[in-house]
Design a protein around this nucleic acid. Structure first.
Length: 581
RNA sequence: CGGGGCGUAGCGCAGCCUGGUAGCGCGCCUGCCUUGGGCGCAGGAGGUCGGAGGUUCGAAUCCUCUCGCCCCGACCA
């Protein structure tokens, strides 16, 4: 491609609203432009990179026997009602009406639509297993789009779905996807870690996320360098010492209500005149799980993990209660809440973090504004509460497997694989006959990759002060060819010949034939980030040579014109790129 | 949703507090010059000051409402 005829709008200055590297660089280098919050236009360079990525995804999916589909993004309400997700998805789903007033939505994912196909067409165990996929646009009305392509409202997803007779089949499909994903991300130049994850609105029995460690990411993952344990902090567990340090000597003293006027936070209660240490306090939080009240109790210095509460309660939609709701159920405002005495209220489900099991001598709110209770014994006073893991792990706590300290770091989710089981086949009636002629629900899996996130993640991982440093495999072109003196006919002609020769040899070349100064071309080439660069200048040409430089490398090497084509072809292959036929 | 910030030329910003001519840098156009890391000089084009209403003789500036965007906390490829 010739730069003089191309739309590659590079910018000298960093866009004001971009904070993360991938956002800044993709805008500056002319790959993307923002249309609205979380909605981006992909420009020609960006589209070429995206096509490289989807090409890799397609190859690896095809390699595990998956078949490519293309399903509608515009969906009728009815099928989402069948799975129950018309309401579960809440405000995250874009909804609209057609001219007749019928409800439609823009699909966030395609479990429902693929299940509709499966139930209509799959009748027998003989037709299984199947793996179906598509590369298609998804719509999610994120509450807070951010960081350029990292979190958007419209994006491209590779989503696939496996259909099996039983658990074993699902396990095989899951494993095939895991291995395909490792190859995909590896080929795209991403270093990923696999972590245990929360399944969220997808449902199902288990899931693994593929994460790229980067500060630009929004997830926190806990990992153990000693044994390899890794989990999203939504799910991660840890070993913590929880001695019964506030237990009274002798018989457990009775509950004692005491006045704490104006004290509504853990921190305030820990200060004078009360001086109750945070680890002696119980933090009581009120949620609604599928519109039913839930009480969650964790230690005062711990953080409640909402994902764990959701899992423990079995709720598909979880939200914090409003102050009025809390007042109605517990009779007090936040700050004076507690789980003691809630056993009689049958409509309130109470959960207490498992680290608190057996402890006594604790302090909690009295469900009476301005009062707390001391001498709380969990086995005696919170016997009605279900003991479950509710807390969020912290860095330095013991690995649940080996006990060595956990490390917590930020990461970007680029892929997620789920064992759905029969979550959709049962709710939507997708069944086949087994060998015995008995009707059984299909066992399903669901597997997703965020395509633009691969692009952005690669930029996060591969850039420097001067710009992007794309891996060969996903770079929009293999090589930048820079004639340095456009006024010099010999330089122009030499560059033109190299361009034609390389193109004929299957190399994707971006020829900077603009009438610009050398400095401008160097700067733009660095910014755009193609892995190879050939400069054609008067100096080298006098000796019949060009200047060869690898993006990010230090050295410039003079290479004879006759060797250029073979040299470039070898470098493209070595870098994981593909020559055009 | 809770909290904070910003909307002025294609991009980055000043002007606003204290009302009166809309400005700077980059980019763009023309000419000359220069030509190996975002050259130089000269001339030029380009603006509903996010929108609506109000106060005022007069509003980018003050007031009210509203829309949009960004960032920090709760949600997900």
């Amino acid at each position: 491609m010739r730069m003089s005829k191309s739309f590659v709008p590079t910018l000298k200055e960093v866009p004001a609203d971009a904070t993360v590297a991938s956002h800044q660089l993709l805008v500056r280098a002319g790959y993307i432009r923002q249309l609205s919050a979380g909605i981006y236009s992909i420009l020609p360079l960006g589209q070429r990179a995206i096509l490289k990525i989807t090409g890799i995804v397609r190859e690896e999916m095809d390699a595990i026997g998956a078949q490519e589909f293309y399903l509608p993004a515009l969906n009728p309400r009815e099928i989402w009602e069948e799975s129950g997700r018309w309401s579960v998805m809440g405000e995250n789903m874009f909804r609209l009406k057609d001219r007749k007033g019928a409800d439609l939505c823009l699909a966030m994912t395609h479990e429902e639509i693929f299940t509709v196909l499966a139930r209509a067409e799959l009748r027998s165990y003989r037709q299984l297993p199947q793996t179906w996929y598509q590369i298609q646009t998804k719509f999610r009305d994120e509450p807070r789009p951010k960081s350029g392509l990292l979190r958007v409202r419209q994006f491209t997803m590779k989503d696939s779905y496996s259909f099996d007779m039983n658990r074993e089949g699902l396990d095989q499909a899951f494993e095939a996807h895991r291995q395909a994903y490792v190859k995909i991300f590896g080929r795209c130049g991403l270093k990923t870690v696999q972590v245990d994850a929360h399944s969220g609105a997808m449902g199902g029995s288990g899931s693994t996320e593929f994460m790229v460690a980067t500060d630009a990411g929004e997830d926190l993952i806990a990992s153990c360098e000693a044994c390899g344990y890794a989990a999203n902090t939504e799910k991660a567990e840890s070993r913590v010492e929880t001695p019964d340090k506030y237990k009274a000597a002798g018989a457990s003293p009775a509950l004692d209500e005491f006045a704490t006027p104006g004290v509504t936070t853990i921190e305030a209660l820990s200060k004078a005149p009360h001086g109750v240490a945070a680890d002696q306090q119980l933090k009581t939080l009120v949620y609604l799980g599928d519109e039913q009240p839930l009480i969650a109790i964790v230690r005062g210095d711990d953080q409640l993990n909402e994902a764990k509460l959701q899992t423990a309660s079995g709720a598909s939609v979880l939200r914090q209660a409003h102050a009025e709701e809390i007042q109605k159920w517990l009779g007090a405002k936040p700050g004076s809440l507690g789980g003691v005495g809630l056993g009689e209220k049958a409509n309130l489900r109470v959960f207490v973090d498992s680290r608190l099991a057996g402890l006594s001598g604790l302090v909690t709110g009295a469900n009476k504004d301005g009062f707390h209770l001391r001498n709380v014994s969990v086995p005696r006073d919170l016997a009605h509460a279900k003991s479950v893991d509710l807390r969020t792990v912290n860095a330095g706590e013991g690995c649940p497997r080996c006990g060595k300290p956990l490390v917590v770091g930020k990461a970007l989710e680029v892929g997620h694989i789920f064992k759905l089981g029969t979550r959709y086949s049962e709710s939507m009636g997708a069944r086949v006959l087994d060998e015995g002629g008995k009707e059984v629900p299909i066992v399903m899996g669901s597997y997703g990759i965020g395509v633009e996130r691969i692009l952005a993640g690669a930029v996060e991982l591969h850039h420097d002060q001067d710009g992007i440093r794309f891996p060969m495999s996903i770079a929009p072109f293999h090589l930048a060819l820079l004639p340095l003196q456009m006024q010099d006919a010999a330089v122009r002609d030499a560059a033109e010949k190299i361009y034609l020769d390389l193109t004929a040899a299957g190399v994707e070349v971006l020829l900077d034939d603009r009438d610009e100064r050398a400095g401008v071309k160097f700067k733009d080439a660095d910014l755009i980030g193609l892995p190879l660069r050939i400069a054609v200048g008067k100096k080298g040409l006098a000796d019949g040579k060009i200047e060869w430089k690898v993006r990010g490398g230090k050295d410039v090497e003079f290479v004879p014109l006759a060797e250029v084509v073979a040299r470039v072809q070898a470098a493209v292959r070595a870098g994981g790129g593909t020559l055009r036929k």
